[in-house]
Amino acid sequence: NQASVVANQLIPINTALTLVAMRSEVVTPVGIPAEDIPRLVSMQVNRAVPLGTTLMPDMVKGYA
């Protein structure tokens, strides 16, 4: 099972992602792969992401 990126805190809309804001977890459905965490740092989310939410490619500006 592949680990996905999960919000480690509430991430407000247009907030730049940080290492502290993300964690890796095996979840269903699978979201952005955990190995992409370094690439996600400083990218912005295009919606509010609640704690525990799996990050999907369409939630991160410039990711997809």
Rank of each mutant, 00 (worst) to 15 (best):
P33G: 04
V26P: 05
L17N: 01
P50G: 11
V49K: 01
E25R: 10
V30L: 15
S42P: 01
R47P: 05
S24M: 08
G52K: 00
V26D: 07
N46R: 09
I13H: 09
M22E: 03
A3L: 12
N1I: 14
M22H: 01
Q9Y: 10
Q9W: 09
N1F: 13
I13E: 15
E25Q: 12
A7V: 09
T54I: 08
T18D: 06
R39C: 08
M43N: 04
V30H: 14
Y63F: 09
V20D: 15
M56W: 04
A48S: 15
A7M: 06
E25A: 14
S24W: 08
P38I: 09
E35I: 14
A7P: 03
V60R: 00
S24F: 07
G62V: 03
N46V: 13
G31E: 01
V5G: 01
P38N: 11
V26T: 10
L55I: 14
P38L: 12
M56V: 07
M56L: 10
A48M: 14
T18R: 09
T18G: 05
V60T: 03
V45W: 00
A48N: 15
G62K: 07
R47N: 05
V49E: 05
M43S: 05
V20R: 15
P50K: 10
P29F: 05
M22I: 08
Q9G: 05
R39P: 02
G31H: 00
R23Q: 04
D36P: 00
V20T: 14
G31N: 01
I13T: 10
L55Y: 00
S42L: 08
S24A: 15
N14P: 00
I37F: 02
Y63W: 13
S42Q: 09
P29Q: 05
M22Q: 00
N14I: 05
V27I: 06
P57Y: 08
T15I: 06
L10V: 11
T54R: 00
M43I: 04
V41W: 00
D58R: 09
L51P: 15
E35D: 13
Y63G: 02
A3C: 08
A21T: 09
T54L: 04
R39S: 10
L10W: 12
R47V: 15
D58T: 10
T54N: 02
A64S: 15
V41F: 03
V5T: 05
E35Q: 13
D36H: 15
K61S: 10
M22D: 02
R47S: 06
A3T: 08
I32L: 05
V49Q: 03
P57W: 11
G62P: 04
G31Q: 00
V49G: 03
I32G: 00
R23T: 07
R39K: 14
P12Q: 10
E25M: 13
N46G: 07
V5H: 00
V60A: 01
A21D: 14
Q9I: 12
V41M: 06
V27H: 02
P50H: 11
P33K: 07
P29C: 05
D36K: 11
T28P: 00
T15A: 13
V30E: 10
S42C: 09
E25V: 09
Q44R: 15
R47F: 06
V20C: 08
L40R: 00
P38C: 09
V60E: 03
D36L: 12
I32W: 00
V5E: 02
T54Y: 02
L17D: 02
R23G: 10
K61N: 11
G62S: 08
Q44E: 11
A34E: 08
V26H: 14
Q2N: 13
A3V: 07
N8Q: 08
S24G: 12
D36W: 11
A21V: 13
L17F: 01
M59T: 03
V60G: 02
V30D: 07
L51N: 11
P12V: 06
Q44V: 15
R39I: 15
P57Q: 07
V6G: 01
S4R: 01
A34R: 04
A34V: 07
S4M: 01
I11L: 09
V6H: 00
L55F: 06
T28A: 13
G62E: 09
Q2I: 12
D58K: 07
D58L: 08
V27C: 06
N1P: 14
R39V: 10
V45Y: 00
T54F: 03
I11T: 02
A64E: 12
P38F: 14
V26Y: 13
P57K: 07
I13K: 15
P29E: 04
P33Q: 06
L40G: 01
P50F: 09
V45Q: 00
D58N: 12
N8W: 05
P57D: 05
M59K: 01
N8R: 10
D58G: 11
L40Q: 01
I37C: 04
Y63T: 01
V60F: 03
L55P: 02
M59P: 01
N1R: 11
P33C: 08
V27G: 01
Y63I: 02
V49R: 01
A64L: 15
P12M: 08
L55S: 03
E35L: 11
P57V: 06
M43G: 01
T18C: 06
N1T: 12
P12L: 09
S24D: 06
V41D: 03
A64K: 08
L40I: 11
P50Q: 11
N8M: 06
R47H: 06
Q44F: 15
L19F: 11
Y63C: 05
V30S: 12
P57H: 07
M43D: 04
T53N: 08
N1D: 14
M43A: 06
P38A: 09
G62C: 08
P29H: 04
P50R: 10
K61D: 12
R47T: 11
N8F: 04
Q44N: 09
G52F: 04
S4V: 00
A7G: 00
T15E: 11
T28M: 13
T18Q: 08
M56P: 01
V60S: 02
L55A: 03
V20L: 12
V30Q: 12
P29M: 04
V41P: 01
I13L: 11
L40V: 04
V45A: 04
I37N: 00
L17R: 00
P12E: 11
V20I: 14
M43R: 11
R39W: 11
K61W: 12
E35V: 13
I13F: 10
A16C: 09
V26R: 10
V27D: 02
Y63L: 05
V27R: 14
A48E: 15
M56I: 07
E35G: 13
S4N: 01
D58Q: 12
I37K: 04
R47L: 07
P33W: 07
V41H: 03
R47A: 08
L55W: 00
A7R: 00
A3K: 10
A21S: 15
I32M: 02
T28D: 12
R23I: 07
Q9E: 11
I37Y: 03
A16R: 12
V27M: 05
A48V: 14
G31L: 02
V60D: 03
